[in-house]
Design a protein around this nucleic acid. Structure first.
Lengths: 228, 228
DNA sequence: TGATGTGAAGCGGTTCACAGCC
DNA sequence: GGCTGTGAACCGCTTCACATCA
């Protein structure tokens, strides 16, 4: 077992493995080999083994992995056995949508408060979640034991909001503002940038495609004739 | 200039560069060097130059890049000068939130239709966008010239929906179902998995942190004592 | 002189392939 | 015999460093 730092790519895949195992478990399957798992879900068996090996020896040679044991182990590794309270900052379209979405997805995260500067919104509710004045953020973080913040404000305010959030002691942040945020090393920021995602589809659609539909090459766009 | 295939990492960064240039342009700045750009926005100057070099020679040695020229070039490379019509499949929380969100974000994408199987939803409107019966998908794709699909249905239906979407000739898909989808090579699928994002925060919060707050190492979770 | 464009080096993640163990 | 756990090979992306050119 390695004790080096684990790549986020690895932990993301653990989430995927856990889902796969949940499916298998629901089907009543008791053990699974890395090869079997890989074939069923279009994964790579060597990668599964390597990812798991970072955290311990979960398999049995000649047999594979015990589905339910591994499910429990991954749940614990991912911290999905501990509850967290979420505060969403920005009660605009994105913020309210996320509040609504997360409220009804059964996870270990529960949304306990929304925050906004707009007086007209403060006091209203989205589902069962109340919208508070952003000035009450610190107070609510203490009272509701919020340990995760979701930033869903316009890009230009995002960095300032982040700094406020960090100052209050929150260490895990999900950012939906289309801008990369900067914080210290020990703060975890996960940015979901829907604009970049759309623009990557736009790029794809803008490509000239060959017979087989594959992207052939970029459009030459030189303003000058290349000497070499 | 290279003509190899371009990594998605590169094109994602082009989106970022374009935003940065828009900011500079708004400030009235006319030229910028890769070093300057990198320092202002916490990027890497060599990477900026390399990314741009895939598409042509946009810079002037000894000067840098002309902000407005480069903005235009990137806009064209990313295909942001051409409009696209989007159909969102799944008028649940996620689908309606996205419809609402995208409708008011000024991009070259416009949401023209929502689709659902639920008869109670069909006929209703989200903002200005009507919800249609999923059976009318092909018809609407033709009529409204939809060329981008957003999949916002529960995980278990996502793969089937994808296949329906592809069959109708759509080549660019954004997937919000928490499951990796499989399609042919010439189809572009961009998956945004909010569950994995949350679980990665969960993992982070579950880690034992040292003095400096850094993640020290994974929890040893071996069921057996390691022999070696 | 100053900044680009780019080959080469460096680095991290993935895949291979097999020794070791059940 | 079968499957894990893992060193080694491989591959692709990032960063360096400098020849090139306005």
């Amino acid at each position: 077992m390695k004790v080096e730092k684990i790549s986020e790519l690895t932990t993301n895949r653990l989430s995927v493995y856990l889902r796969c195992l949940n499916e298998l478990s629901a089907k009543g399957i008791k053990t699974v080999s890395s090869d079997d798992l890989a074939k069923r879900f279009h994964l790579n068996s060597a990668q599964i083994r390597k990812d798991l090996a970072y955290f311990g020896e979960f398999g049995v040679r000649g047999v594979g992995y015990y589905v339910d044991n591994l499910r429990q182990d991954l749940t614990k590794i991912l911290g999905l056995d501990k509850p967290h309270n979420v505060g969403i900052i920005g009660a605009g379209r994105m913020g309210t949508a996320l509040a609504d979405y997360y409220e009804y997805s059964q996870t270990n995260f529960s949304v306990v408060a929304l925050f906004d500067t707009d007086k007209a919104k403060v006091g209203q509710k989205v589902g069962n979640v109340k919208i508070h004045d952003i000035k009450k953020f610190e107070e609510l973080v203490k009272k509701e034991e919020i340990d995760v913040a979701v930033i869903a404000v316009p890009a230009q305010y995002a960095q300032d909001i982040l700094e406020m959030v960090v100052k209050v002691g929150i260490k895990a942040i999900m950012n939906f503002a289309p801008i990369p945020l900067k914080a210290e090393e020990n703060i975890k920021i996960r940015t979901v940038d829907l604009t970049i995602s759309l623009e990557s589809l736009s790029y794809f659609l803008a490509q000239p495609t060959g017979e087989n539909g594959k992207i052939m090459k970029p459009i030459a766009k030189n303003r000058r004739i290349k000497k070499k």
